[in-house]
Design a binder for these strands. Structure first.
Lengths: 158, 158
DNA sequence: CTGCCAGTTCAAGTTAACTTGAGGTCAAGG
DNA sequence: CCTTGACCTCAAGTTAACTTGAACTGGCAG
């Protein structure tokens, strides 16, 4: 097997075809040519996609990830960058630990109202002072279809 | 001192005036009347803002936070929701721990290329399989000004 | 040969949480 | 009385990472 088409790449990687096109446009991946109109990908794109998924999971933005590939496409990952991101994760983890403990306490606290629970109020002060905050978690915006991750095969409307 | 104006509320809470207006529009806070055009806030809004900051730090969306206040404005925080969020944080923390360890290893790994490091490749597989992913951290989008968090006092343009 | 259907392009839409800008108002100070 | 400046409203812009829609194309099965 030489090249794979976009549907195959999507199937094998779990990344949607529309995302693959988006990634290509962004320069994160490259198609290896066309058969007619259709992109053909080198199977190595799957490694690349795994690398991208890893970067995303580690909290890198797509732009940061793009910068981790040399112009020739070879991954040139700076070890210091990895270490820095590890430290960043470390800090995040610490905050989340504190938050989790606080939430657990608040959930179990017998005080009649949360406002009367000292632990809750301490958490509150920490949050208000910004000692904890600056975290934003986006949930995946997939709003429709229980599809398994592929684009639906429904083109050319009315 | 009875009521505070928006600038005072911003100063005391560290939340921008524009954000306060936004929160009011969203129903997260309420102004207690107007002096002329200007909103006046009950100082209790500061507690409310702290609560909101706490919720945000814990990973709740503004909409979720809004739902934590009864229609009358009293906080009605479901302990089960807190516990659930704590569990969610727990899962996130575990993933981040794995990611941090992997990054640290990769940063220290003596293999000539990351692709030849077994640990790195293991991480890669985990990310590709989605066992780690689904995390998205947004950095604060404040793109301009080193201001301390207040709106600049510069109105009426040309 | 014909038509289907998966693929294509490009622009625009989505979401969250705000921010920014334009243009307007009003209370107080000089 | 008139200016000033902080506040007001409302609409539109921002960012990231995609998704969706409309209109189109072309390889291949029949």
């Amino acid at each position: 097997m030489r090249d794979i088409d976009i549907a195959e790449a999507a199937r094998l990687s779990g990344v949607r075809a529309s995302t693959l096109r988006f990634y290509e446009e962004k320069g994160l991946i490259a198609s290896h040519g066309r058969r007619g109109l259709r992109r053909m990908f080198d199977p190595a794109v799957l490694d690349r996609l795994a690398l991208i998924a890893l970067g995303r999971a580690a909290g890198f933005s797509l732009d940061e990830i793009a910068r981790m590939f040399a112009p020739d496409g070879r991954p040139r990952i700076d070890r210091r960058m990895l270490a820095a991101k590890a430290e960043e994760l470390e800090r995040t983890i610490r905050k989340l630990n504190a938050m989790r403990d606080g939430l657990r306490h608040a959930a179990a606290c017998p005080a009649p109202s949360h406002m009367e629970c000292p632990t809750f109020r301490r958490l509150l002060r920490a949050a208000a002072s910004g000692a904890i905050g600056e975290r934003k978690t986006r949930r995946p915006p997939r709003k429709s279809f229980a599809a398994t991750g592929r684009e639906q095969g429904r083109a050319r409307g009315s």
